[in-house]
């Protein structure tokens, strides 16, 4: 499972970097989203994976299982997702305004706009 997720994380990072280097702002935003998902998965894997062993004792049992899953990484990821969600919404709105103002979503146009 770890190996599989590690490969997925690598792929997501690769896709994210590829998209970040594109000229279109939409793809830039998509790239950042891929990046953030890869990072969230990275935290998830780094926190340790133990299937079906919750941290809390279920009804009738007095002790948790011997090797319980750490719930904290999931809380961290949840926070990171929420933050990422807000920022992506902001970035999309920003892109929309930029498109309205300039009529383009080409990042190369930024260079020319600098001195105007």
């Amino acid at each position: 499972m770890e190996v599989l997720l590690a490969i997925v994380i690598g792929l997501l990072y690769a896709a994210g970097v590829y998209l970040l280097l594109r000229r279109s702002i939409v793809k830039l935003i998509l790239g950042i989203m891929f990046f953030s998902h890869a990072t969230n998965l990275l935290i998830f894997v780094a926190g340790g994976l133990h299937k079906g062993q919750p941290q809390f004792a279920s009804d009738g049992l007095t002790a948790v299982s011997a090797n319980p899953t750490d719930p904290l990484p999931q809380a961290l990821i949840l926070t990171a997702i929420v933050i990422g969600f807000g920022i992506t919404a902001f970035f999309l709105a920003l892109m929309y305004r930029f498109y309205q103002a300039t009529g383009t979503e080409d990042l190369d146009e930024l260079k020319e706009g600098e001195n105007k």
């Binding site: 935290i43 961290l76 970035f91």
Partner: peptide
């Protein structure tokens, strides 16, 4: 915005790895 977001994600990845360790 874009460069600062990327830097935040570096920070987050660092936290994840450090927590795992």
């Amino acid at each position: 915005v874009s460069i600062n977001l990327v830097s935040s994600l570096f920070f987050l990845a660092g936290i994840g790895l450090l927590y795992g360790k």
